[in-house]
């Protein structure tokens, strides 16, 4: 319950934050909402010597529309995303995913950037940003860069971020005409994390065939992943139940599937297929509705 001692730093600027991170290296950790890091510190599974609190960088909490994208500041809380009228209209998958994270207190405090940078293998956001083909933007003393979501999650709790890089923005392309998205999740009965969480985006052609499918899956492997095999199986095919079923069967293909007390690897693979099918079904339904709207 009691974390180890650390030094606490409140940088006033991004540059300062980045500089501090470079200085402390492995001894330092960024602190955003703290809802991934602080529980680990209390269990003494993490004991950083320096905490660099980013929450004073208020400029990093925003949701705005810019051209074909919505841009979300990394320090935006899950709740702001859940309740954002703009996102409900422009990118409803994000509020739908946010609603499934933790509980109201966690959503009030936890941030999308912190969640993504922590990259828990059962966190919800990774599935959504993968399916939305979002760009994750980061700043370091070397400047700013963007990373495709599919390249961001490297391994168990490891991202493509350098240790002095601060994740600053999630840039999400708006869904086009005839596109639908959905998030289907089975909650772990104790932790509330995803035993399996599947985000699916489906774009339909006028003839009802699948123009584009993007599926992000969390909770199943050591890191969240794009289910390319599912996507490929759907591409160009009519979005019939039979095709959705067949595509969903590839959900855990080639993945080193997690096992725990609540789901063996075999069962979790099965869950991945079922929840992928459900996410696809819901996304197709919405895509059809969007096409006729």
């Amino acid at each position: 319950m009691i974390p180890q001692s650390f030094e606490y730093h409140v940088p006033r600027t991004l540059e300062e934050a980045s500089r501090l991170a470079a200085q402390f290296g492995a001894d330092g950790k960024f602190l955003a909402g703290g809802h991934s890091l602080i529980p680990m510190m209390k269990l003494r599974l993490a004991a950083p010597k320096h905490l660099i609190d980013l929450t004073c960088l208020r400029d990093l909490a925003y949701i705005r529309e810019e051209g074909e994208h919505v841009r979300i500041g990394a320090l935006t809380t899950h709740f702001r995303i859940e309740s954002s009228a703009l996102l409900k209209e422009k990118c409803p998958l994000l509020p739908e995913t946010a609603r499934e994270i933790g509980d109201v207190q966690v959503r009030n405090r936890g941030t999308i950037g912190g969640n993504l940078a922590h990259s828990d293998p059962a966190a919800d956001w990774p599935a959504a940003v993968l399916a939305l083909e979002a760009e994750l933007r980061a700043v370091s003393p070397r400047g700013e860069r963007g990373m495709a979501a599919k390249d961001f999650f490297v391994d168990l709790m490891t991202t493509a971020l350098a240790s002095d890089e601060v994740l600053v923005e999630i840039k999400v392309p708006q869904l086009g005409h005839g596109t639908g998205a959905a998030y289907a999740k089975l909650h772990h009965p104790a932790s509330g994390y995803a035993m399996v969480g599947v985000a699916a985006v489906i774009a339909l052609r006028d003839n009802g065939a699948v123009e584009r499918a993007a599926v992000g899956i969390t909770g199943v492997g050591p890191k969240a992943y794009r289910a390319f095999a599912v996507e490929t199986a759907l591409h160009g095919k009519p979005a019939t139940q039979a095709h959705l079923n067949a595509a969903a069967a590839h959900a855990a293909e080639g993945v080193d599937v997690n096992a725990d007390l609540y789901a063996s690897a075999e069962y979790r693979s099965h869950l991945a297929r079922v929840y992928t099918r459900r996410a696809l079904e819901a996304a197709v339904k919405r895509a059809r509705a969007a096409a006729t709207a």
Binding site: M1, G34, I38, L51, D53, Q105, N108, R109
Partner: peptide, 18 residues
Amino acid sequence: TVLLNQEAVKSCTVFAVQ
């Protein structure tokens, strides 16, 4: 749970300095 700037938070997961 307490209200921090009127939002419910779990005060075991916030450092006082925050």
